[in-house]
């Protein structure tokens, strides 16, 4: 299971204030490619347990956060380290290519 569900309300404490790096999966109910990425994100959450906090952010319900990070296409996976975006991955990709991107910033 992904560790968390992020919202406009908890983003500051859960993501920006997190000690461990955080991967945020920006998604929405209507987004078909998100359904492909969703299960991959679940697997990543398991494989990176302890090293990376993983959670989802529904862009329809949390438009403020999505907008402030310029998310205009989903799925978008952003990695935050010490409150800063260190990686942006736009669109569906394979698990291995996500892992390569994650490993490059961890």
């Amino acid at each position: 299971m992904a560790d968390a569900s992020f919202t406009d309300q908890n983003f500051k404490t859960e993501v920006l204030g997190s000690q461990t790096p955080v991967l945020v999966d920006f998604w929405a109910e209507w987004c078909m490619p998100c359904r492909i990425v969703g299960p991959i994100v679940e697997e990543l959450a398991n494989e990176y347990k302890g090293k990376l906090k993983v959670g989802k952010l529904n862009v329809d319900e949390n438009g403020k956060t999505a907008q402030s990070y310029g998310v205009m296409s989903i799925p978008s996976l952003l990695i935050f380290k010490n409150g800063q975006v260190v990686k942006t991955m736009i669109g569906a990709q394979s698990k291995d290519s996500f892992k390569r991107e994650i490993d490059s910033v961890l």
Partner: peptide, 17 residues
Amino acid sequence: KIGRGVSSCAPCDAAFF
């Protein structure tokens, strides 16, 4: 700007507009 206003998939990205 692909994914930042340039898109080829309206069903994916329309809601941001």
